[in-house]
Amino acid sequence: MPVILAIESSCDETSAAICADGKILSNVIANQTIHEAYGGVVPELASRVHQQNIVPAVQQALFNAKVSKNDIDAVAFTRGPGLLGSLLVGVSFAKAFALAKNIPLIEVNHMQAHVLAHFIGDQNPAFPFLCLTVSGGHTQIVLVNDYFDMEIVGQTLDDAAGEAMDKTSKILGLPYPGGPLIDKYARMGNPNAYAFPEPQIPGFDFSFSGLKTSILYFIRDNVAKNPDFIAQNLNDICASVESRIASILLNKLRKVAVQYGIKDVALAGGVSANTGLRLGLQELGAQMGWRTFIPKMEYCTDNAAMIGIAGYYKYLKKDFVGQDVAPLARMPF
């Protein structure tokens, strides 16, 4: 029964988890509030806070799981993609821990781990399945044939869906992080109040840069006519933006599922915590006769549990790396 310590530090969450024989015993996430004052993640500050958080996060994960550091059989860590300085903290800790305990190191691709989060628990999709992976930096439709046999069949050509959410929140003057606030206000608004365009991109790829520009001009023009436009219509604006982003994602997902004849469809990544997108997938799944899968909220955003489950399946294959491993800001899928 392998006991794996998992480390995640790709952006601004420092997370540690314990995975024993494919079961998550603990999952500790230390968030960084320092970035709120800057309206976004500051890479240098993120790496410094990771240094402060990583030891307490690991200690808490061990305590919560009721295991000691001597029980650990391997260390799994996020090698990339992500912010290089943030990754460096997690990779360095993992290498030092593994060296001190003379145990194997397991590198994990952050985006593959988001997909494999669906194997935490007992309700798992069957291979092959599709996974719509949506975050602040990535938007992908992945054909998952096996645990590590994955193919990107559609992806954004420019900006990610999460970035479109973040940009909208800044345009609206919402504090960072704005994504959860858009979700909150959208629940009280009319998703049909305003019509934003859907990009006509051929194939299965996405584009969100034009939508961001459309939202910017829409707000600019209406505020010029009525300075109180945002305050008076915030709920409807958020609901309309959220609805359009969800429809762009789900319309492409439907096309891929029909093309490949797949009935198990999953959602992953930070934006999978968005209520409108979660409900939209479930409604579409009911229409299409799909089995739909969405991780628990704690496994949607960046977390070490997903690194642990990915590390577990790599451990079974004895897929280890040496002490010369280095972080990768961009890591091939």
Rank of each mutant, 00 (worst) to 15 (best):
D183F: 07
E151L: 14
N222M: 12
F127W: 12
L84F: 13
S47I: 07
D122W: 00
G189L: 01
A57E: 10
A94L: 02
V258Y: 12
S207D: 04
F333S: 12
G22N: 08
A20G: 03
A224I: 09
T14Y: 14
Y315M: 12
G280M: 06
V265G: 07
L116Q: 08
D166T: 06
K296A: 14
I7P: 07
L45A: 06
A126H: 10
K255F: 05
S92K: 01
I34A: 15
F97K: 06
N251M: 11
A329Q: 08
A195W: 00
H35T: 07
C300T: 13
A186F: 12
D183C: 13
K170L: 05
G322W: 05
F196A: 04
V41E: 09
Y185L: 14
S135T: 04
I141E: 12
I307H: 08
L62S: 00
V55D: 01
F320K: 07
N109M: 01
V28H: 01
F208Y: 13
I34V: 14
A257D: 01
Y312N: 04
V241Y: 02
V67L: 03
A224Y: 13
K101N: 15
H50T: 06
S207A: 03
F148V: 14
V223D: 01
T156R: 09
V108S: 01
A100L: 03
V325F: 13
L143Y: 15
S86Q: 01
Y260W: 14
R187A: 15
G22V: 05
C19N: 12
L105T: 05
K255N: 15
S9N: 04
P104Q: 06
V241L: 04
I141W: 09
D21L: 02
Y147N: 11
I18N: 11
S272H: 00
G85L: 11
C300E: 00
M306R: 03
V271R: 10
M165V: 12
T275C: 08
A268M: 02
V55H: 11
D149L: 14
C19T: 15
N145Y: 09
V325N: 12
E44S: 06
L316P: 04
A224P: 10
L279K: 12
F218C: 06
K69C: 05
H50D: 03
M150R: 15
A161S: 06
I171S: 14
F208G: 00
S86P: 03
R291D: 06
M111E: 03
P128S: 08
R244T: 11
S214N: 15
A57M: 10
Y260E: 10
R220A: 12
G285R: 13
D302A: 11
A164K: 00
G269Q: 04
Y299G: 00
S10T: 15
E298T: 03
C238L: 10
V115A: 13
G210A: 11
G276L: 03
I237Q: 06
A76E: 04
Q140K: 09
L253R: 02
V28Y: 08
S26R: 07
A46G: 06
I294D: 09
K314A: 01
S272W: 00
D158S: 11
M150F: 09
D149A: 15
L88C: 06
N70M: 10
V134N: 00
N226V: 13
I24L: 11
N31Q: 10
D324W: 10
C131F: 02
M306F: 08
H110W: 03
R79G: 00
